[in-house]
């Protein structure tokens, strides 16, 4: 495991080159370029805001703003996973011709999405500032939340991208699971809506805790529960380690299956 991280560090130039490629490939020939990463979640916000304030009246204060704060981290999770699952497969030409730590490929995809997310957060911060809602000292929680989410996504991405090479249905399955999982994370609702009996389950959902944390810190002006946050960190690290172990078990057969 430690050797693995060392190995990735050794290939940091490759990671950098893949990042540059990732950004170029993503926004080549598109006029609005990097703003698409903000416009996409914004469209979702508008749709949900319309439904839940005009049609079904949901009782959450400043609902459109709340949505903005939860949909951005959800989009990070969602698009990072969807983009990375096919990444090793799509780079088969490298994988079959040279030896290097394969996990760098999905990792680069996750980092491209991370950078997008951070840019989105900056835009959001500007919006919040002009609305007179910040910056506050609670914003210091943000790097911590981003870090937990990054660890969680990285682990899953590394594992899924390897499995996809062997099992091509994963792509479709993942799409469905993500669509379902969206409703198990407090994006369009807050945790207060969840009945007491079920709320314990959210304790075992690291992403739910993270997204709730963003909402608390950015808009509700509340301090995230430190026990929950710590549990989320622990779970994310465990998932990351488990995914890396599983990845290591199949990594050597990946070039043969491409």
């Amino acid at each position: 495991m430690l050797g693995q991280i060392k190995n990735i560090f050794k290939f940091r130039e490759l990671l950098l080159a893949l990042l540059v490629r990732g950004f170029k490939a993503k926004y080549k020939n598109s006029f609005l370029g990097i703003f698409w990463s903000f416009l996409n979640p914004l469209a979702n916000v508008l749709i949900f805001a319309f439904i839940f304030t005009m049609i079904i009246r949901i009782n959450i204060k400043d609902y459109p703003l709340y949505l903005l704060c939860t949909i951005l981290p959800w989009t990070f999770f969602n698009s990072a996973l969807i983009n990375s699952v096919v990444s090793i497969f799509e780079d088969s030409h490298f994988v079959k011709n040279t030896a290097f730590p394969l996990e760098i490929i999905p990792l680069a995809v996750v980092i491209v999405n991370l950078v997008n997310f951070v840019i989105d957060l900056v835009i959001l911060a500007v919006v919040l500032f002009f609305l007179g809602r910040g910056p506050g000292h609670l914003w210091f929680y943000l790097p911590f939340l981003i870090f937990i989410e990054f660890i969680l996504i990285s682990g899953l991405s590394i594992f899924f991208s390897a499995v996809y090479v062997i099992f091509r249905d994963l792509n479709f399955i993942l799409n469905i699971i993500l669509r379902l999982f969206f409703y198990f994370v407090p994006v369009i609702y807050t945790l207060d809506f969840v009945p007491e009996g079920f709320r314990l389950l959210y304790f075992f959902n690291p992403l739910a805790v993270i997204i709730d944390g963003y909402a608390k810190v950015l808009i509700q002006g509340l301090r995230p529960d430190s026990t929950m946050l710590f549990a989320s960190l622990l779970q994310s690290v465990l998932i990351f380690v488990a995914c890396c172990i599983l990845f290591n078990r199949i990594r050597r057969i990946i070039p043969e299956r491409l």
């Binding site: 290939f11 130039e13 490759l14 540059v20 290097f100």
Partner: peptide, 9 residues
């Protein structure tokens, strides 16, 4: 650049 990086340059 990509292959150079893979090669460790």
């Amino acid at each position: 650049y990509l292959y150079g990086a893979i090669f460790g340059l």
